[in-house]
């Protein structure tokens, strides 16, 4: 078993080395600077994610939404009897959560809205917002479940997907370009990714965990 494993790993590494050596040709692409200028953006990565390869991004978001459906189907929530909440509630933790939640949300929004000018964009902003919402777990799962109504969040998430689809239509069919579209798409992606991360974390916290 182990020699075979070593051989497999070695073979894959040799293949990677071949790819890295530059022996394989690379295709010609239009200069990203020109594309960015047409979009009124300065961050070339955001231009590609939201402009040139918008369909790509859209379907990757759909994959993300599908995995969340899988997580929801697989994990059954557990009623807490006798056992404590998943995150121990202490005054310090509660105060830290209250203090940090606001700045994290503001920073995530900043990262999302400035994503076409500097580093940032919908994906990191959504992940930041999702992690920030985790701070709310310090309040205890039961109380949180009472406050946050998950089906509403779900509808917001699917609404965000539909809105991205509509935006895609405007951009691809009508040929509209410009920074307002980039900002709108970044914000929608933030909503989508953040709600997805939140639903996953919330489900894991509500289930019992294993091993």
């Amino acid at each position: 078993m182990k020699p075979l494993a070593a051989l497999t790993v070695l073979g894959l590494l040799v293949l990677l080395g071949l790819g890295a050596s530059g022996l394989l040709p690379r295709p010609e692409l239009p200069l990203p600077e020109h594309v960015a200028a047409a979009w009124g953006a300065r961050n070339l990565v955001a231009t590609i994610v939201l402009g040139v390869r918008l369909w790509d991004t859209l379907f990757e978001i759909l994959i993300y939404a599908m995995t969340i459906v899988g997580v929801k189907l697989g994990l059954r929530p557990v009623r807490w009897e006798g056992a404590g909440p998943p995150v121990a509630e202490t005054p310090l933790l509660r105060r830290a959560a209250d203090l940090l939640l606001g700045p994290v949300v503001v920073f995530a929004l900043y990262v999302a809205t400035s994503g076409h000018l500097g580093p940032g964009g919908g994906f990191p902003a959504g992940a930041l917002l999702g992690t920030g919402l985790l701070l709310a777990l310090a309040k205890g799962v039961e109380r949180l479940s009472a406050e946050v109504y998950e089906p509403t969040l779900e509808w917001v998430k699917y609404g965000a997907i539909v809105a991205i689809l509509a935006l895609t239509g405007v951009v691809l069919v009508l040929g509209r370009k410009g920074s307002p579209y980039l900002i709108a798409a970044n914000l929608l992606m933030t909503v989508e990714v953040a709600i997805g991360a939140w639903v996953i974390l919330h489900r894991f916290a509500k289930s019992r965990g294993e091993l």
Partner: peptide
């Protein structure tokens, strides 16, 4: 950029299967 986020989602799904 998209691959990192998808990685996280598929990892969560795999963990659900293990559970």
């Amino acid at each position: 950029l998209t691959a990192i986020v998808i990685d996280f989602a598929t990892l969560a799904l795999a963990l659900v299967f293990v559970i």
